[in-house]
Amino acid sequence: MQFEGAVLREQGVTFAIVVVKRHVVDNRTEAQSAIRSFSPVFPGVPVVLMAQDSSGRATYFGRPDITRFMSHVSPSRVPWKRYTLN
């Protein structure tokens, strides 16, 4: 499975962001399961999920300090990359 994601280091914290469908971010159980499934691609790094609505507005799910920080960052400034999860 291929997906879009990014690894960022901000304010001394390294973390990963993974793009998912909106319904994943809206469902806590599904979001937590998704984070666990993506964690092997980013070992030892907190994973945050990001979904966009039809107008491009981003919503995040994950560690509160990281989601708060990312809520002030435009998704267009994130260095997205295609990853593969086997």
Rank of each mutant, 00 (worst) to 15 (best):
N86S: 14
F38I: 03
V20L: 00
T67D: 04
V24E: 03
V45D: 00
P64S: 15
K21M: 09
R22Q: 15
F61P: 02
F69C: 01
L49N: 07
V48K: 03
S71R: 03
R9E: 12
F69Y: 15
S54H: 11
T59P: 00
L85A: 13
M1Y: 10
S71V: 02
K21V: 05
A51L: 05
S55C: 06
T29R: 15
Q2N: 14
T84P: 01
G56V: 09
F38T: 01
N27I: 11
V7L: 10
R82D: 03
E30D: 12
F42G: 04
V7R: 11
R57P: 00
D26Q: 13
P43D: 02
H23R: 13
V24C: 09
P75G: 06
T14G: 08
A6L: 06
S55R: 15
V41F: 00
T14E: 13
E10S: 10
S55P: 01
V45W: 00
D53Y: 05
V13I: 14
P79V: 11
G5A: 10
A6W: 07
K81L: 06
R36W: 04
P43S: 09
H23L: 10
E4R: 11
D53E: 01
V48Q: 02
L49M: 08
G62Y: 08
V20P: 00
E4K: 11
N27M: 11
S33T: 14
N86D: 14
M50G: 03
I35M: 13
L49Y: 06
F15Q: 01
F61E: 09
Y60S: 10
T84M: 11
R36T: 09
R68F: 15
V47H: 08
T29F: 13
K21L: 12
H72D: 11
G12P: 02
V45A: 05
Q52G: 09
V7P: 00
R82I: 12
K21D: 15
